[in-house]
Structure formats: structure tokens, C-alpha cells
Design a protein around this nucleic acid. Structure first.
Lengths: 156, 156
DNA sequence: TATTGTTATACTCTATAACTATA
DNA sequence: TATAGTTATAGAGTATAACAATA
């Protein structure tokens, strides 16, 4: 699994048992989240590249034009054009002519694309589920509470 | 911030207030961790690419040869050779001839490299710290406990 | 004339294969 | 002959610039 951080943690002395500072919690929690993310993303069960996975997930949420996808994913229109081309080629995405505007196409998932995306999501969840099974119920309850907080943190 | 997952969560009914299944916790927690990771990695304060950051972090932990770095980072020797070349060019890494084996060089961080790495780590921690400041002390305590658990989860 | 989307071209990071220098 | 490292070359994914078709 490639990129790790291997940091020297900001010295928290176990002998001096005090509540950690916000900075210490931030550092340790950040590394822990990034380790989880790396584990999922570099898992062997992934059968598609991250940027293509993202596009499938966006199209699962709603059908979009290429320009909309490029804006949401913050890549250039030519890049998105190429990604969409690959997904159409693989039979996961369909282009339908927009009846109101001949310049653009409405992109959406094919049944194959939906199935594939569901399998990939399941693989990611399985990676996590297998690892949570080693915890006690009480520990999982802590992580359940933490999930809500992490989402607030991520939202800024 | 590019790749999001935008998933449809596996239906947890708020009315039927029961303990979530492991699968539900796994799904929600995985997404939360990946959101945090994305937030950090795509933060504007990053001044170096992830693969170069990783190499600096490895060399901060210990001086290494190019072959060792390639093995640790799981990239090919030519790829690592190029990355090291970039970092040497930028003045962050130094090549010292190995006195015992003329074929290889010992790579280590220069003072500039150490400073730069410290600043980049600080920027990542700052991103997280700023966001934790909005939480109560009790909420931060939950996240502190969660950090330990997440590291166990990541370790498998 | 402005906008959607694609093609042309180039840069970066990755890889495998081939080469140089040293063991 | 085997190993450490680099150079040569090629394949993705990204970008900007230029072009086509449509509004």
C-alpha cells in the first residue's frame, strides 16, 4: 500500500497523563483517517481507477451532462470527455441526446454500470466490515458516535 | 475537492431507532474517513505532490537507498529514481556515496527538506485543528478514543 | 457571438526493457 | 554473473489551445 506518512507524533508523554491538546488529537486523528482511506483505496478488490469510480458515483446520484461532471469533479472538460469515453466504451455509461439542446448529451448509468458500481461499493464496505468485526460492541458504539462528528469535521 | 462518493446510505430508518448493524457502521465510518482524507489531500496548502511527500516522510524516519525506498513505496526503481532526482533538484534530499558499496547512495533529508516537510505536516494538521475547534471537549474526547480504534481497524 | 464537446498537443507519473558501473 | 541505479521508451491521466456543431 503506497503512500504512508510515517510521522513522528508530536510528543505526548504517556507518563504525564493529561488530556491531549487539540493539535495532538488533530494530528493523530488525521493520520488514522488517512490510514483507513489508504487501506480502502489500495485494496486489491478495487477493479477501477479512483477517478472513474467517482464519475460512476456521480451518475448514480443523478444523470448529468459532461460539463456538469467536469465542474463537480474539478477536472477540465477534455479530461472528463476522455473519462466518459472510457466508461461508455466499457458499457457502464450511456449517452442520450438532449432533446432541448443538440450540443449536449445526458449521461447516465447503464444497468451494467449500476451493477458494477454496487459491487465496487460493496467491496469497499466489506474491507471495513471485516475489520470492525474484531471490535467489541462498546468500541463500535464509540466509532458510531465518532462517525457523526467526523462528518461535521469534514464539512468544515 | 475532486473525488467524492455521494453514496446512497444503506437505509437506516430514524423512526426505527435500533443499534446499527456492523455493515452500516462500516459504510458510514468508511465514507467519513475518506471525506477527511480527501479534505486534507486536496487542501490548497499542499505545496508538493503526494508521492514526493511520502518519500520525504520516509527519509525523515530513516536514511535509505533508492532501492529501499522503491520497495517501501511499492513503485519501480526507475520511478523512484526520478522522484529522488526531483527532490535532489529541489534541494530537499542529499545523495551520499556509500563507503562500503560504490553502486549505491545513501539518501537523506537536507535541512531545507526537513523544514519543508515540517511545514507541510503542520499545514495538514492545521486543516484538521481548525475543524476540531468547533467541537465541545466531550466530542473531542470521543474522537480521541476513536483514533485508537481507527488505528487498530486500519492495521487489520 | 457564446457555449458544448471533442481533437491536437504537451507534461507528469507510472511502467518494462536495456544499459552502465560496481560487487 | 548478479546487483544498484539510470536512461530509453511507452502508456495513462491531466492540462491548455484550437476546432466543430449548435444556440
Amino acid at each position: 500500500m503506497p503512500p504512508a506518512e510515517t510521522s513522528a507524533p508530536p510528543g505526548r508523554d504517556a507518563a504525564t497523563e493529561q488530556a491531549p491538546t487539540i493539535e495532538q488529537v488533530a494530528h493523530d486523528l488525521r493520520l488514522a483517517c488517512m490510514r483507513i482511506s489508504r487501506g480502502v483505496r489500495f485494496d486489491q478488490r478495487n477493479e477501477i481507477q479512483p477517478h472513474l469510480f467517482s464519475v460512476l458515483a456521480r451518475l448514480d446520484a443523478a444523470s448529468r451532462t459532461a460539463a456538469e461532471l467536469a465542474a463537480i469533479e474539478r477536472v477540465s472538460p477534455p479530461s472528463m470527455s476522455k473519462s466518459v469515453g472510457v466508461l461508455v466504451e466499457r458499457g457502464f455509461v450511456r449517452r442520450d441526446a438532449d432533446p432541448d439542446d443538440g450540443r449536449q448529451s445526458i449521461l447516465s448509468l447503464t444497468p451494467d454500470g449500476e451493477d458494477f458500481l454496487a459491487r465496487q461499493r460493496q467491496a469497499r464496505d466489506d474491507w471495513m466490515t471485516e475489520r470492525l468485526e474484531g471490535l467489541t460492541e462498546e468500541e463500535r458504539a464509540v466509532l458510531e458516535r465518532a462517525t457523526v462528528l467526523l462528518n461535521r469535521v469534514a464539512a468544515g
